[in-house]
C-alpha cells in the first residue's frame, strides 16, 4: 500500500509548496495575460516598429526553453546587479514565457474578426484604440478563451520549474521531502496528486468552455 504517513508527517511542507505553486500560477496567470495582450496589440497595431518588436518577442521567447529564461532571471541578472529570489525570478520567467503563447492566441483571435469591421468602426469616428477595445476585442475574446485556457494549464505545470531555482514550490518541497526521507515513489505520487488537483479542474473547465463556445458559433 501507498504510505500515507509520508503525506501526514510532511503535510506542512507539502502544503507550503502547494500554496506557493498556487501563488506562482495566479501571479503568472495575470502577468502572462497582461504581457500577452500588450504584445498581441503590438503585433497588429498599424505601427511598423511595434510590429517588429512584438514579432521578435513572440518568435524568440517561444522557441527557447523556459529553463533558460528561469536561469537567466535567477543567476544571470545578478551579474548586472539585480538579485531576485527563486520564487520571483521563476514567476517572472513563467509570465514572460507563457505570454508569448498567449500573444499568439490573441493575435489569431483578433485577426479572425473580419477586417471590414475595423474599417467601419474607424470611418464612424472611433480611434484605433477605441475600435479595438469596443468592437474587435469583445468578439475576439470568445475565440481566444479556449487556447488561453490551455496555456494556463501549461503554466500551472510549468511552474514546477521553480523547483530548480529554489523557488519553494510544490516540486521543490517534494524533492526536499524525498531526499530527507529516502522515499521517492510515494513522495512523488503525492506531488503528482497535488498538481492534478489544480490541473484536472482547469482542464474540465477549458473543455466545457470549448464545447459551449463551439456551439454558440
Amino acid at each position: 500500500m501507498i504510505d500515507f504517513s509520508i503525506l501526514i508527517d510532511n503535510w506542512d511542507t507539502y502544503l507550503e509548496g502547494f500554496k506557493n505553486t498556487i501563488f506562482a500560477s495566479l501571479i503568472g496567470l495575470v502577468g502572462s495575460f497582461v504581457i500577452g495582450v500588450i504584445v498581441a496589440v503590438m503585433r497588429i497595431a498599424p505601427i511598423k516598429p511595434l510590429n517588429w518588436i512584438g514579432t521578435v518577442y513572440v518568435e524568440f521567447i517561444r522557441n527557447i526553453p523556459l529553463l533558460i529564461i528561469a536561469f537567466f532571471f535567477y543567476v544571470g541578472l545578478p551579474a548586472i546587479g539585480v538579485t531576485l529570489p527563486g520564487f520571483v525570478a521563476g514567476t517572472i520567467a513563467l509570465s514572460i514565457y507563457t505570454a508569448s503563447f498567449i500573444a499568439e492566441a490573441i493575435r489569431a483571435g483578433i485577426q479572425s474578426v473580419p477586417k471590414g469591421q475595423m474599417e467601419a468602426a474607424r470611418s464612424s469616428g472611433l480611434t484605433y484604440l477605441q475600435a479595438m477595445r469596443l468592437i474587435i476585442l469583445p468578439q475576439a475574446i470568445k475565440i481566444v478563451i479556449p487556447p488561453i485556457g490551455n496555456q494556463f494549464i501549461n503554466l500551472v505545470k510549468n511552474s514546477s520549474i521553480l523547483g530548480m531555482i529554489a523557488g519553494l514550490d510544490l516540486m521543490y518541497f517534494g524533492d526536499i521531502v524525498s531526499s530527507h526521507t529516502f522515499v521517492t515513489f510515494d513522495v512523488y505520487i503525492f506531488v503528482a496528486l497535488f498538481y492534478l488537483v489544480l490541473t484536472i479542474p482547469l482542464s474540465l473547465g477549458v473543455g466545457y468552455l470549448e464545447k459551449r463556445l463551439a456551439r454558440s458559433h
Binding site: 517534494g174 512523488y188 498538481y195
Partner: peptide, 13 residues
C-alpha cells in the same frame, strides 16, 4: 495534466 519535470523525476528516481 502532470508536469513533465515530475514525470522525469518519477521515471528516474
Amino acid at each position: 495534466n502532470t508536469p513533465l519535470l515530475l514525470i522525469i523525476f518519477f521515471t528516474f528516481f
